[in-house]
Design a protein around this nucleic acid. Structure first.
Length: 109
DNA sequence: CTCTTGACTGAGG
DNA sequence: GCCTCAGCCAAGA
């Protein structure tokens, strides 16, 4: 695969796939890891097309640990269900102990 | 090329 | 702690 042919979106997907089971990360963390710290919005924008990809988008939340993208899932609480299924505690769209389950690709990878 | 759209973020009131 | 504003930048029409 020529990197030039890989779009920014695809790079986002690869990083999201690297997120360990039972962990979550933020849009900004992914953007920073990709060298585009100011492109956090692009990460979310990329996730908008993640439905056609095998990407665990539910592991990606904003910097506050809030499930901002839950409305993009079929069910109203599907995203929360998926996270809790991985052992992550979610209350009212807010991840509990966010710092403990947070996975920073720039540090861990 | 120009314009619009965002699952974001940080600063300011 | 909450709300608003502005900057950010890639992709699609």
């Amino acid at each position: 695969m020529k990197p030039e042919t890989i779009s920014f979106f695809d790079r986002v997907y690869e990083v999201v796939r690297l997120v360990p089971h039972g962990r979550v990360t933020s849009y900004g963390a992914i953007a920073t890891y990709l060298g585009a710290a100011r492109s956090a919005r692009m990460v979310g924008y990329a996730m908008n097309a993640s439905h056609t990809k095998d990407v665990p988008a539910h592991r990606v939340v904003n910097r506050k640990g809030l499930l901002t993208g839950k409305f993009h899932f079929d069910g109203t609480n599907l995203m929360q269900q998926l996270l809790q299924n991985e052992g992550i505690v979610v209350i009212d769209n807010q991840i509990q102990d966010f710092e403990k389950v947070f996975w920073n690709p720039s540090k861990e990878l």
